Simulated assay, not measured.
Amino acid sequence: MSSLPEREAVGTLLRHVLELLDGDVAKVYAERELADYRPRYSPVVRALLSGGPMPIRDLARAVGVTHSAASQTVAQMSGAGLVDLTPGADARQRLVSLTPKAHWLLPLVTAEWTATTAAMRTLDSELSMPLVDLLTEVATALTRRPFRARIADAGLPEVAGDPYPAQHGDE
């Protein structure tokens, strides 16, 4: 078993758990000779299946990520031949749609989604509460009161003035 990060390193622990989950899903894809398919593609595929071709901004909203993150994922998926980008209603907009290759992969990807959902239920049965419920609770609490405010309340002193005056002389 791999060693866990120290208890106070919550961000490191969250990334570690995500690596364990996504890493094993990625291994499933690789075992089925889908090495170009990444777990992060599935929410995009699902959104495009349910909503049809859409601009990256709408796709980001549907998936629940930033525009930048959606754009990066779409670029990777385009490189893997899974999505096409076509001009949208105005010059700044690009519509994302699934390619025939993505549609061809759907039966295998859908089977993985079903198996992953079942595997998550078995993992949840070993936890004190379902992981999705805990993560939703955390996200709701942080939306209600951001972590930055909580850090300030914990007594972090304010920064007065320029902390690096020697580097910011008259320019």
Rank of each mutant, 00 (worst) to 15 (best):
E31H: 10
E31G: 15
E33I: 13
E33A: 12
E33H: 06
L34I: 02
A35V: 04
A35K: 01
D36N: 05
D36S: 14
R38M: 09
R40M: 07
Y41C: 01
Y41D: 03
S42I: 08
P43E: 07
P43D: 01
V44L: 11
V44H: 13
V45H: 05
A47D: 00
A47H: 01
A47G: 02
A47L: 01
L48F: 02
L48T: 00
S50L: 12
S50Y: 06
G51S: 11
P53H: 15
P53E: 15
M54P: 02
M54G: 14
P55Y: 04
P55D: 09
I56F: 05
R57P: 00
D58C: 09
D58E: 12
A60H: 01
R61P: 03
R61I: 00
V63W: 02
G64V: 07
V65E: 01
V65C: 06
V65A: 11
T66S: 14
T66P: 01
H67C: 07
H67Q: 10
H67D: 09
H67P: 02
A70R: 03
S71M: 09
S71W: 10
Q72N: 10
Q72C: 08
T73C: 06
V74N: 04
V74D: 00
A75V: 03
M77Y: 02
M77S: 07
G79V: 00
G79Y: 02
G79Q: 00
A80E: 00
L82P: 01
D84L: 13
D84T: 08
L85W: 03
L85N: 03
L85D: 02
T86S: 15
T86H: 06
P87Q: 11
P87K: 04
G88T: 03
A89F: 12
D90W: 07
D90P: 05
A91W: 15
A91R: 13
A91K: 13
Q93W: 03
R94P: 07
L95P: 00
L95Y: 05
V96Y: 12
V96Q: 08
S97E: 12
S97F: 06
T99Q: 07
K101C: 10
K101H: 09
A102D: 04
H103S: 15
W104H: 15
L106R: 06
L106G: 05
L106D: 04
P107I: 02
T110Q: 15
E112K: 10
W113M: 15
T114N: 10
A115E: 11
A115I: 08
T116Q: 13
T117I: 11
M120R: 07
T122I: 10
L123K: 02
L123R: 07
D124T: 02
S125N: 06
E126D: 11
E126I: 14
E126Q: 14
E126G: 14
L127K: 00
S128K: 14
M129V: 04
P130E: 04
L134E: 05
L135D: 02
L135C: 12
T136I: 11
E137W: 11
E137S: 14
V138S: 11
V138H: 08
V138P: 04
V138T: 05
T140N: 05
T140D: 13
A141K: 08
A141F: 06
A141T: 10
L142M: 08
L142P: 00
R144I: 14
R145T: 11
R145W: 04
P146W: 12
P146N: 10
F147A: 14
A149H: 09
A149M: 11
A149S: 14
I151A: 11
A152T: 12
D153R: 15
